[in-house]
Design a protein around this nucleic acid. Structure first.
Length: 154
DNA sequence: GCCAACGTTGGC
DNA sequence: GCCAACGTTGGC
């Protein structure tokens, strides 16, 4: 899951413990939240538009998808008049902090790693803010980042 | 700040 | 349903 650190960083999540991932306004990204995410699923937290851009840590899904109330709020930058409480168009999931990498694992490193061949985030023009990651890729990224995780002590 | 790539919108 | 115009994303 991508976030611009100037808006919301892994440190912000560490401080908050948990956050509602509001503001996703892309159908494909929404569908991943709604259809594929389950409580307990692990997430790579990616800093976009950053220096450097890359994976900043690990989070986990803390709720199933439910309507994103920001879409109903005229004052919100995420307001969308097509979405109503009766017929919500956009959803969010809650995301909980797991770990912050000591150092960002830069996109450049991800592109260089043979083991990560085919990973979505490395593809040209890939700007989807929520992307599926294979278990093998996930583990390898954690290893590259030197992150110790339950079930992934390597 | 530039700009390529992409998604969305809306005229036809 | 096509596709040009537009707005946004995000690496650099």
């Amino acid at each position: 899951m991508k976030s611009e650190p100037s808006v919301y960083s892994i440190k912000d999540l560490q401080r908050d413990g948990k956050t509602a991932w509001e503001g996703v306004r892309n159908y494909q990204a929404r569908n991943f939240m709604r259809d594929s995410m389950r409580v307990g699923d692990l997430v790579l937290f990616y800093h976009s538009n950053a220096d450097p851009s890359g994976v900043a840590g690990v989070a986990k899904i803390a709720s199933r998808a439910y309507p994103d109330a920001a879409a109903f709020d005229r004052e919100s930058r995420y307001f969308d008049e097509r979405s109503t409480p009766e017929k919500p168009l956009w959803v969010l999931v809650e995301v909980a902090f797991v770990a912050a990498f000591k150092e960002i694992l830069p996109l450049e490193k991800i592109k260089q790693a043979k083991e990560l061949e085919g990973i979505m985030v490395a593809k040209r023009g890939m700007r989807l803010s929520i992307q599926p990651v294979s278990e093998a890729h996930f583990k390898y990224i954690c290893r590259l980042a030197g992150c110790r995780m339950p079930g992934n002590e390597a």
